[in-house]
Simulated scan of single mutants.
Amino acid sequence: MADLTHISEKQLRRCKQLIRALCCNFDHGNCIALDDGEPCPCVQGFSYSLLCRWFRQAVLPADRELYAEVMRERTEKRCCICGKPVFSTSNRAKYCPGCAQRERRKQDARRKRESYWNLRK
């Protein structure tokens, strides 16, 4: 228990949204897995530490950006444009998902523009 991961207020709010939307053990503020006859509140919903193993393994990976921030995996990998942590499955990723889409459109437009003018010559 000494190596608990601590999260900020902003990260806690995002975690609560994930819990409400995706956690199968969440039932109107209570945790079904901890229920032993009487309702027990979901500990992950109000704790600034990652206490729930189910949340860490099954729910948190659904939000890749939050997962990268909280679990601090590959902290040296940051988006080249905005600086957000990037969670990727390959070593070629340079951008977060939002910036990747914008950068891809810019590169496509540049390539098509160059191709057009090279054909006109």
Rank of each mutant, 00 (worst) to 15 (best):
A2E: 13
L4G: 10
H6E: 08
H6F: 04
K10F: 01
Q11L: 03
L12I: 07
R13N: 14
R14E: 13
C15A: 11
K16D: 14
Q17G: 12
Q17V: 15
Q17C: 11
Q17F: 09
L18H: 13
I19M: 12
I19Y: 02
R20F: 08
L22S: 11
L22H: 12
C23K: 02
C23Q: 04
C23E: 01
C24Y: 13
F26Y: 10
F26Q: 02
D27Q: 15
D27L: 15
H28P: 04
I32D: 06
L34H: 11
D36L: 12
D36A: 08
G37I: 10
G37K: 13
E38H: 13
E38G: 10
E38T: 14
E38L: 14
C40E: 10
C40L: 11
C40Y: 11
P41E: 09
P41S: 03
C42E: 08
C42T: 03
Q44R: 02
Q44W: 05
G45E: 04
G45I: 01
G45M: 06
S47V: 00
S47R: 02
S49Y: 07
S49L: 04
L50T: 01
L51Q: 06
W54R: 12
W54N: 13
F55T: 10
R56N: 04
R56E: 11
R56T: 04
A58I: 04
V59K: 02
L60T: 00
P61M: 00
A62P: 07
D63Y: 06
D63H: 06
D63E: 00
D63S: 05
D63M: 01
E65R: 12
L66W: 01
Y67G: 00
E69S: 14
E69I: 09
V70F: 07
V70S: 05
M71H: 00
R72W: 06
R72G: 10
E73M: 03
R74I: 08
R74K: 09
K77I: 11
K77L: 15
R78W: 12
R78P: 03
C80P: 06
C82K: 05
G83C: 04
K84M: 12
K84I: 12
P85S: 03
F87Y: 15
F87Q: 15
S88Q: 06
S88M: 01
S88H: 08
S88C: 02
S88D: 06
T89Q: 01
T89L: 01
T89D: 04
S90A: 00
N91Y: 11
R92K: 12
R92L: 06
A93T: 13
A93I: 08
A93P: 00
K94M: 13
C96V: 07
C96H: 07
C96L: 05
C96S: 07
P97S: 05
C99F: 03
Q101R: 13
R102N: 08
R105S: 14
K106V: 09
D108T: 07
A109G: 07
A109P: 08
R110K: 10
R111G: 00
K112Y: 02
R113G: 09
E114I: 04
W117H: 09
W117E: 01
W117M: 06
W117F: 12
L119E: 09
R120F: 13
